[in-house]
Amino acid sequence: MSEISDNIKNVIENEPVVLFMKGTPEFVMCGNSDRALRALREAGAPVTAVNVLPDPEIRQALSELSGWPTIPQVFVGGELVGGADIVQELAEAGQLPEILAGKLGESYRDGAEERVADVLTPAQR
């Protein structure tokens, strides 16, 4: 297990909502990542974003862990919810807040502010 995989697992298990995306919330680099981010923000989710662009190994390790081949990937309470299509469909059906509350508790909105997590081992940065 590479260090990147361990770091990815740590973020998935320790952060309430993780969005693996192309770019960062301030500089979104792809349409699907933007759709997922907007849907999560609208639902008031406390998003921890991970930029997969700095190193292709991030995406590779992530897809090995999740079995999901594309980016973005959204995890809530340690579980894969899906990519942009699913997250947006859930949001449009008004079900995203229910899922967030179900996995994170009713007060999920007061979770931490939106932030970026780094999964690259210090040596590679």
Binding site: W68, P69, T70, L80, V81, G82, G83, I86, E89, L90
Partner: peptide, 9 residues
């Protein structure tokens, strides 16, 4: 839904 999309992927 997620499993439906997995089949397509």
């Amino acid at each position: 839904l997620i499993d439906q999309h997995r089949l397509v992927n």
